[in-house]
Amino acid sequence: ASVAVIAAGTQGNIFATSALRSMRFLQILRMVRMDRRGGTWKLLGSVVYAHSKELITAWYIGFLVLIFASFLVYLAEKDANSDFSSYADSLWWGTITLTTIGYGDKTPHTWLGRVLAAGFALLGISFFALPAGILGSGFALKVQEQHRQKHFEKRRMPAANLIQAAWRLYSTDMSRAYLTATWYYYDSILPSFRELALLFEHVQRARNGGLRPLEVRRAPVPDGAPSRYPPVATCHRPGSTSFCPGESSRMGIKDRIRMGSSQRRTGPSKQHLAPPTMPTSPSSEQVGEATSPTKVQKSWSFNDRTRFRASLRLKPRTSAEDAPSEEVAEEKSYQCELTVDDIMPAVKTVIRSIRILKFLVAKRKFKETLRPYDVKDVIEQYSAGHLDMLGRIKSLQTRVDQIVGRGPGDRKAREKGDKGPSDAEVVDEISMMGRVVKVEKQVQSIEHKLDLLLGFYSRCLRSGTSASLGAVQVPLFDPDITSDYHSPVDHEDISVSAQTLSISRSVSTNMD
Results as ranks from 00 to 15, higher is better:
Arg218Trp: 06
Arg355Trp: 13
His386Pro: 05
Pro316Thr: 15
Lys441Gln: 03
Arg207Gly: 07
Asp401Tyr: 13
Ile494Met: 04
Val221Gly: 04
Gly288Cys: 07
Tyr178Asp: 05
Ser281Tyr: 13
Pro345Thr: 02
Val436Gly: 01
Gln204Lys: 08
Ser281Phe: 03
Arg194Gly: 10
His448Tyr: 08
Val496Phe: 04
Arg435Pro: 01
Ala346Asp: 03
Lys295Gln: 09
Gln473Pro: 05
Ala424Glu: 12
Val378Ala: 15
Gly417Arg: 09
Ala274Ser: 13
Arg459His: 07
Arg462Gly: 03
Lys332Asn: 07
Gly470Ser: 07
Leu452Arg: 07
Tyr186Ser: 10
Val340Ala: 01
Trp183Gly: 14
Val221Ile: 12
Ile379Asn: 13
Ala165Val: 10
Thr369Ile: 14
Gly246Trp: 03
Pro408Ser: 10
Leu273Pro: 07
Val439Ala: 05
Cys336Ser: 08
Glu368Val: 14
Asp418Ala: 10
Gln286Glu: 10
Ala225Pro: 05
Pro488Leu: 14
Leu312Val: 05
Ile481Ser: 14
Phe366Leu: 12
Lys363Gln: 01
Ile446Val: 05
Val472Glu: 10
Asp478Val: 13
Asp187Tyr: 12
Tyr382Cys: 07
Thr180Lys: 11
Leu196Arg: 11
Gly409Ala: 13
Ile503Asn: 10
Ala181Gly: 04
Pro421Leu: 15
Asp342Ala: 06
Gly455Ala: 08
Asp484Tyr: 15
Leu396Met: 02
Lys315Ile: 14
Leu211Gln: 02
Ile393Val: 03
Val427Ala: 03
Ala233Pro: 04
Ile189Ser: 07
Asp304His: 08
Asp304Asn: 15
Ala219Pro: 12
Arg309Gln: 06
Asp187Val: 04
Glu368Ala: 15
Ser431Gly: 07
Thr398Ile: 12
Glu195Gln: 05
Tyr170Phe: 05
Ile403Thr: 12
Ser299Thr: 12
His202Asp: 12
Pro220Thr: 11
Asp223Glu: 12
Ser284Ile: 13
Ser487Arg: 15
Arg406Pro: 13
Gly260Ala: 14
Asp478His: 14
His272Tyr: 06
Ala225Gly: 08
Asn208Thr: 09
Gly209Trp: 01
Gly252Arg: 05
Arg371Leu: 02
Pro324Thr: 11
Lys365Gln: 01
Asn208Lys: 05
Glu285Asp: 02
Thr266Arg: 15
Thr294Ala: 09
Leu469Pro: 12
Lys449Met: 11
Ala384Thr: 13
Arg212Leu: 01
Glu440Ala: 01
Thr509Asn: 15
Pro479Ala: 15
Gln286Pro: 09
Leu312Met: 03
Gln263Lys: 05
Asp493His: 09
Lys332Met: 09
Val404Glu: 07
Pro479Thr: 14
Thr280Asn: 02
Arg264Gln: 12
Asp451Val: 13
Lys295Glu: 07
Phe359Ile: 02
Asp493Glu: 13
Ile503Leu: 12
Ala274Thr: 05
Leu501Ile: 14
Ala274Gly: 08
Ser175Gly: 04
Pro282Ala: 11
Gly455Arg: 13
Ser333Cys: 02
His491Asn: 12
Lys363Glu: 02
Arg265Pro: 11
Leu454Ser: 08
Arg258His: 02
Cys336Gly: 04
Met433Lys: 03
Glu321Lys: 12
Gln204Leu: 08
Thr306Ala: 10
Val378Gly: 13
His386Tyr: 06
Arg265Trp: 02
Gly420Trp: 11
Arg399Gln: 14
Glu368Gln: 06
Gly409Val: 12
Ala471Val: 09
Ile494Ser: 14
Asp480Ala: 05
Met432Thr: 09
Phe243Cys: 11
Ser283Asn: 12
Ala310Pro: 04
Asp322Glu: 09
Ala384Val: 08
Val347Glu: 07
Ala197Gly: 13
Asp423His: 04
Ala471Gly: 09
Leu190Pro: 11
Gly224Ala: 12
Ser497Tyr: 14
Ser284Gly: 13
Ala197Val: 01
Leu390Arg: 14
Gly409Arg: 02
Ser299Arg: 06
Glu289Ala: 01
Met259Thr: 04
Lys298Asn: 15
Leu387Gln: 15
Arg414Trp: 04
Lys254Glu: 01
Ser292Cys: 13
His491Leu: 15
Ser261Cys: 10
Ile257Leu: 00
Glu327Gln: 12
Glu247Gly: 11
Thr277Pro: 04
Gln499His: 12
Arg237Pro: 11
Ile257Ser: 15
Ala413Gly: 09
Glu440Lys: 01
Asp493Tyr: 07
Leu476Val: 15
Cys235Tyr: 08
Gln381Lys: 01
Asp418Tyr: 07
Ile351Asn: 05
Leu214Val: 08
Pro276Leu: 10
Leu476Arg: 13
Gly420Arg: 02
Pro191Arg: 04
Ser281Pro: 15
Glu195Val: 12
Ser248Arg: 10
Met511Thr: 07
Lys315Gln: 12
Gly407Glu: 05
Ala323Pro: 06
Gly464Cys: 05
Gln397His: 06
Arg435Ser: 01
Lys412Thr: 04
Glu330Lys: 05
Arg305Cys: 15
Lys438Arg: 12
Arg307Leu: 14
Ser487Asn: 10
Asp451Asn: 07
Arg317Leu: 09
Ala467Asp: 11
Ile430Leu: 02
Gln381His: 01
Lys449Arg: 09
His236Arg: 11
Ser497Ala: 15
Arg505Cys: 12
Asp377Glu: 15
Val507Asp: 09
Ser466Leu: 13
Ser262Cys: 05
Met259Ile: 04
Leu390Gln: 12
Asp418His: 12
Ile257Met: 09
Ala165Thr: 09
Val437Ile: 01
Pro191Ser: 01
Tyr178Phe: 09
Leu199Ser: 14
Ser487Ile: 14
Asp173His: 03
Pro488Ala: 15
Thr182Asn: 12
Arg414Gln: 10
Thr277Ser: 12
Val443Ala: 02
Tyr184Asn: 08
Glu447Ala: 03
Val426Ala: 01
Asp451Gly: 10
Ile481Met: 13
Ser325Thr: 15
Ile356Asn: 00
Cys460Tyr: 14
Ser502Arg: 15
Val221Leu: 12
Glu289Gly: 03
Arg505His: 01
Ser261Gly: 15
Ser463Thr: 12
Thr266Ser: 13
Ser188Asn: 13
Ile403Leu: 14
Pro222Ser: 09
Ala329Pro: 01
Gln297Glu: 08
Ser192Pro: 01
Ala320Thr: 09
